[in-house]
Amino acid sequence: MEYIKLTWTDLLLSLTFVGLALGLAAWQRLDIKRDISIGTVRTFVQLLAVAYILKWLFNLQTWPPILGILALMIAFASWEGTRRPTLKIPRLYPILYFSITVTVALVLGITIGFIIPVDPWFQPNYFVPLAGILIGNALNGAALTADRMGSEIQQRRLEIESALALGASAGEAVKRSFRMSVKAALIPSINSLMTVGIVHLPGIMVGQILAGVPPMEAIRYQILIMYMLISTKAIGSIITGMLVYRRFFTPRHQLKIGLLEHSN
């Protein structure tokens, strides 16, 4: 199977789709023409930039700049994550940075060390895209956990303080909030394990198939990635959960009730 290259001229025709969306938006007066236009341009510019960066990366022969890029990606992801929770959680950034880094290092390490025999280990066309997927997922898990932890503690304030009043530690008092938060963060990934291939065809598999990879091979990568993702979510969420609840307590196991009244 030979794969058909898309030329820039071909791509020009794809603007028809944008035109179609714009036309429909105008017809229904959705007032989102501006957003669609900006989004269209941004998609083009951002992906073009990514292509240049990847092209440059793929030519790298040493690992330090690749790990540097990874650190930068995690920095951006953590920053994005601090904006998500509804409650303002103090010093959330270092928690996210730490939990994403540990999670990605672990899952990517196992993958490259034992499953995909990449040589050298930092070979950028494997390392960078895989890291990207993992960082995005670790971020989602961590941010969901942090957000949910805030609302659980808010809702269970009485339960938590009743436990503290009995002499429970902060960790013991939030046990149920912790479980609820981590569980909530895992549910989307569990759902996608259940529905993959039935409700949706994942992008990586579609991409490989379009690139001429036989389906039986393409699904192997997809299965690997699905399994990597559930593990990433679980590790990222649990680490985040174990760190983030502490932000709501003083060292003397007092609930900082002032935090529960401030929205982000």
Binding site: G167, A168, S169
Partner: peptide
């Protein structure tokens, strides 16, 4: 039983 499961009992 809950108070009995608390780790730091005095």
């Amino acid at each position: 039983d809950y108070p009995r499961r608390i780790s730091r009992r005095t």
